[in-house]
Simulated scan of single mutants.
Amino acid sequence: MTQRTRLRWNGDAALAATRQGAARGLRLAAEHVLEVSRRRVPIEEATLERSGVATVDESALTAAVSYDTPYAVRQHEELTYRHDAGRTAKYLEGPLAEEADAVGEIIAAQVRRALR
């Protein structure tokens, strides 16, 4: 008894779905890091907190989280400044390192979802 199997490989479609899932995962992961970091941003008038944004370059598959005030870098790097409870310097670096596993899982979940 001979059994035949036919397989159709849609490589271009699979690649496109993977990129689409990765881009969506990057966006969700960047938003996650932004949310966690906003809970730590030094706050006086909330200008720094409101300036935070998450962006994704889908063509390069890169994401960024940034804060855009003239003093954002100084607040991030200056370890001697005093902050309210729960607010701290390294408000972006800390959450990014601490949430690295979650970021990976968010991206992987979106790639898996796109390939269903």
Score class of each variant (00 low, 15 high):
residue 11 G to L: 14
residue 10 N to E: 15
residue 37 S to P: 00
residue 74 R to I: 10
residue 9 W to T: 10
residue 56 V to T: 05
residue 34 L to C: 11
residue 59 S to Q: 12
residue 114 A to Y: 06
residue 65 V to G: 07
residue 47 T to E: 14
residue 13 A to H: 13
residue 28 L to W: 00
residue 52 G to K: 06
residue 37 S to C: 01
residue 65 V to N: 04
residue 63 A to G: 15
residue 43 I to W: 01
residue 53 V to G: 10
residue 1 M to G: 14
residue 22 A to E: 02
residue 51 S to N: 10
residue 14 A to C: 09
residue 103 V to H: 03
residue 114 A to F: 03
residue 24 R to G: 11
residue 54 A to D: 12
residue 14 A to V: 10
residue 15 L to D: 11
residue 7 L to E: 06
residue 90 K to H: 11
residue 53 V to N: 12
residue 10 N to D: 15
residue 26 L to W: 02
residue 60 A to W: 03
residue 83 H to V: 00
residue 114 A to W: 07
residue 9 W to Y: 12
residue 55 T to D: 15
residue 17 A to I: 01
residue 19 R to G: 03
residue 33 V to N: 10
residue 74 R to G: 04
residue 101 D to T: 12
residue 32 H to P: 03
residue 70 P to K: 06
residue 92 L to W: 00
residue 102 A to P: 09
residue 96 L to H: 04
residue 66 S to Q: 11
residue 2 T to S: 15
residue 95 P to Y: 08
residue 38 R to S: 09
residue 28 L to E: 13
residue 35 E to F: 13
residue 19 R to N: 11
residue 33 V to Y: 09
residue 58 E to R: 12
residue 90 K to F: 07
residue 57 D to L: 04
residue 39 R to Q: 13
residue 82 R to P: 01
residue 31 E to D: 15
residue 88 T to W: 00
residue 34 L to H: 09
residue 75 Q to Y: 03
residue 114 A to S: 13
residue 54 A to T: 07
residue 99 E to H: 08
residue 56 V to K: 01
residue 112 R to M: 11
residue 71 Y to H: 14
residue 28 L to P: 01
